[in-house]
């Protein structure tokens, strides 16, 4: 095996190990759930990306073919990591926070996750905001 292959694979493996461990350690270390969400969804995805690049280079050097499986796994992980992060953040916001706990959204309508008419059927620990009363119909004179 040529030297540059060994060097590339080694560098990518070490970088991936460091990123993966930092992501998992941040899950333990960070204080509150919204900042805990930040560590694994970024760092661990980068770690898996490093492992997959190292694997691509290694199997290209040993078998002489470029395999597309690693690219598919990387693409899938990069596509799905933001979706799972959004869903976990929505779970935290809707189960443990009220709109009064959050900073202002700066717009007239407030946070979009609360203003949608949807998630009223699941497990909720706080009562929903009461709807605005309908304006009284104008009385005909």
């Amino acid at each position: 095996m040529p030297f540059w292959v060994e060097l590339t694979v080694t560098v990518f493996l070490v970088i991936a190990g460091v990123f993966g461990f930092v992501g998992s350690y941040g899950l333990i270390k960070l204080p509150d759930p919204m900042s805990r969400l930040h560590a694994p969804t970024k760092a661990t995805t980068l770690g898996v990306g490093g492992v997959l690049i190292a694997s691509m280079v290694y199997f290209y050097a040993t078998t002489g073919r470029i395999s597309a499986h690693e690219l598919m796994v990387t693409l899938f992980l990069l596509l799905t990591a933001p979706i799972t992060a959004l869903f976990i953040a929505k779970v935290h916001l809707h189960l443990r926070k009220t709109p009064k706990d959050l900073p202002s959204a700066g717009e007239g309508s407030g946070w979009a996750s609360y203003t949608a008419a949807g998630p009223a059927r699941g497990v909720r620990d706080f009562p929903r905001q009461p709807e605005e009363p309908a304006p009284a119909p104008a009385t005909p004179r």
């Binding site: 992501g23 759930p33 694994p40 898996v48």
Partner: peptide, 14 residues
């Protein structure tokens, strides 16, 4: 909390 457990399970999969 639930969200921490879901996040930890997702990280375990990765």
């Amino acid at each position: 909390d639930h969200s921490d457990r879901i996040l930890a399970l997702d990280t375990m999969v990765i």
